[in-house]
Structures are given as C-alpha cells and as structure tokens.
Design a protein around this nucleic acid. Structure first.
Lengths: 151, 151
DNA sequence: AATTCATATACGTATAAACATATATGTTAA
DNA sequence: TTAACATATATGTTTATACGTATATGAATT
C-alpha cells in the first residue's frame, strides 16, 4: 500500500535535499555531467561515508541518478525531473555558479581530470567524458608524436 | 562580532525555509501581497502559535517582512531579496500555483476577504488591499444602493 | 487600571538529520 | 578462494526542527 505523494510532498522533499551545503557542493560538481564518487571525495576533501550518504539522499529525493561501472559508481543530475523541479535546480546551479568558491571547486574537478599527477585514489577512476574531452582539446599530448617520429 | 554569512550559507538558509509544507502554504497565500496573520490562521485552519512560529522562521530567513498595524500584523514577501533568491522564490510560487490544492487555498483567502459572513476572528481584521479591490470590481455591493434608495 | 483582542514566545516531547567511526557489501584482480 | 579496491550502510552521539499546550507580550478599549 504505497502512500500517494502529493506535489507539496515533492516540493518539501526537493527543498530539504537542497538545504545542505555538502549536497549543494555535490550538485555544483556534477552540473555538466555525471561524476565518479571518488572525484567528489577528492575534490571536496570530505570523508567517503559522508559523501556517499549525501549522494544517497539526493538520489532518494530524485534529484540525481547513479550508475555503476564495475567498481566505480557515477552520480549525475537526473534527466527525469519534474519540469518545475528542473527549473528550480537550474536556478540553484546558476546561483552556485555565481559564487567564486563554487567555481573554484568545479575547476578543481576539471584539474583532477586533466592532471597526470593525482592521488592513487582517483588515478585509475573513470573520468567524466566531457571533462576528458576538454583535456584533449586544451592539451594535445606530445608523447604520441614523439613516438611516431622515433618509429 | 558578527559571523560573516557566505552565499552558500544563504542558500542553505533559503532552502531550509522552503523545506516545510506549512511555510510553502503561507508563501502561496501571500503571493500577491501582504496578509494579516489571522487570515493565515483561518484559511490554513492551523493553530495560531504554529502559524506564528513558521512566519517567524520565514522572516528570520529573510524571505518575508512583517508590519504591525495596531493589533494586527501583516506578513508579505520581502522586496529586498537577493536576485537569485528572488528567482527561486518566483519559481516556487509558480510551482505552487500549478497545484489545484494551493490554488484553492488562495481562493479561500480571496473568499474570506470578500465574504460578509466570516468568523469573528477575522471579521474586523484589515484585509489585503488588492483582494479588497477585487471584491469591489467583481461584486458591486447591492446594500449601498438599497439604502440610498430608501433614503 | 483592568479587560479584551491579536500575536509572539516558552516549554516539553518526539522525530529527523548531520557526523565520525566502524563495518558491510559489491566488483575485480591475483 | 583470497585479497584489494570502491562504495554503501550501521552505530552511537549531537544538534536541529516541528508540534501542542501554555503563557507572555503588545495594542486597543472600557
């Protein structure tokens, strides 16, 4: 016997999910696309259980979806949101994006994806595709050309 | 020694304020203009202390302002909101307005302002101006004409 | 000044939520 | 099968929050 969830219930749920700074920071990082848990943990410099718990909260609230890829789990903003919730979430991301501190954290994520010198915890983790592409565009790898020349 | 409030703090505060159904219902009623506390209590059919407490929460969060007029106190949406918060709140009101239950509650407020047969608790309370004007436009009073005719 | 009316706040209780630490669970490699 | 890696969940503690009931506070009337 499922309890019917009203729109007001949904509103309360969505705003409760947004009423926490750690969760806002998580949403900021996954603004462009899904991100692996280990990257959240690394960039936000928070404990793994804490990050995991907040991600679970966001998922239960319906704001994000998760996908497992072997040992790795990715979280991204849900593409099945109620239009109203989607609008509010867009507002949130814009508000976050207007803050230098949040912009900097997102840049740290980008840096973590592009840098070759990263902690072992994320060294082998699957990187967000869009950010990896940015790497290839911004920094063409010199190694392949050198090797080809030697051959 | 005031603690400096960051934008992330403000976001958390705003969304925490929105994360309660009673408070959402209150915002819905004051969407057009300020409303006297007694009308909130009457229309939402909730206890006075409960209403008062939630209004205080909204005021502390900066979403609403209050104004005393003798024995009566009016609450309305603040006109000094951060633009980002304002955008979110506008979308909240739109989300609320899309719900039949919320539309009906707002209509109850209008009815309470226009009806001549109301509980003594709000019979003498100052009515929201915009809604009163709507009364004059929508329902011209027949009594004044009858009285004038008798005279 | 006492009384009435309108609203704010106090008090006690129950529930929810955030957190650090510990541990369980799921996947992969050896 | 065991061990390593990545993530989810359990546990105990602290803090915040919502609520009903009671009371205090502020304004107006008598």
């Amino acid at each position: 016997m499922a309890v019917k969830k009203t729109k007001l219930d949904e509103m309360e749920t969505v705003f409760a999910a947004l009423a926490d700074q750690t969760r806002l920071r998580l949403l900021n990082l996954m603004r462009d696309e899904e991100v692996c848990v280990c990257f959240f943990t690394e960039v936000l410099n928070e404990s793994q259980p804490k990050i995991s718990r907040h991600l679970a909260y966001l998922r239960k609230a319906g704001l994000v979806d998760s996908r497992r890829e072997g040992k790795w789990v990715h979280y991204g903003i849900s593409d099945r949101l109620d239009p109203m919730a989607r609008t509010v979430l867009d507002n949130v991301l814009e508000w976050l994006g207007s803050q230098e501190v949040m912009t900097r954290e997102h840049e740290e994520l980008v840096a973590a994806c592009c840098s070759l010198d990263v902690p072992v915890t994320i060294a082998r983790a699957p990187k967000p595709e869009a950010l990896v592409e940015r790497e290839e565009i911004a920094r063409p790898k010199p190694e392949p050309e050198i090797e080809t020349y030697l051959l």
